[in-house]
Amino acid sequence: MKEILPGIYLQEGKRKRLLTRNLIPGKKAFQEYLHNINGTEYREWNPTRSKLAAGLVKGAKLPAINEGSTVLYLGAASGNTVSYMSDILGPEGMVFAVEFSPKVTRYLVYLAESRPNIAPVLADARYPEKYLPFVLQSDFMFQDIAQREQVEIFLRNARLFLKKGGYCALALKARSIDVAEMPKKLFIAAKAQLQKELIVHDMIALEPFEKDHALFVCQKK
């Protein structure tokens, strides 16, 4: 087992496993597997259920998620990926988890009540000014929302809530922008749009974990 990024472990073997140290040992956040390695409990991070994990398995470098960092997570859904973020950031960090659907926010609230470093925010990511009172500027930002203007939303949030020099990652779903267009074309267009304001370090296709998705790793100038 080796630590590929602070707090994120990769176990080589028959099957590659991505692991994070469980913040609340003995407790599962969802239905993930728990592994006990040398007396420490780890939670398995399934790349088919988390776009960030898929990106990490495919070699994304995200230097800004450290213990004690703050993270803004847009499109948190029921909080699967958020729970791993909370593992990585540890008790001193914080994930601001923004989600627009009230139904899944319920699960996010349950998660936040069991893990002290999660702050759920029920708001529309398209209007970042509206959740200014509930969120602080963060070291890292991640977005995974299936909206037509996802790139524009990402940039708007990065302007307000990302620290200078901070890293951010965008999981882009090509099919949400245009169902008929070739994904590759859309990725190139998205990259050009991101480069106007951010430094784009990496663009990773998430195949075979997700179809027609790409992860963009960017940094604020």
């Binding site: 914080m94 609230v109 702050a119 759920p120 925010v121 509930f134």
Partner: peptide, 17 residues
């Protein structure tokens, strides 16, 4: 004040739901 804000966020999110 991060953790105070997070606790308040939970209260607001619950009411919004």
């Amino acid at each position: 004040r991060l953790f105070e804000i997070a606790a308040a966020d939970i209260l607001v999110a619950k009411q919004l739901v």
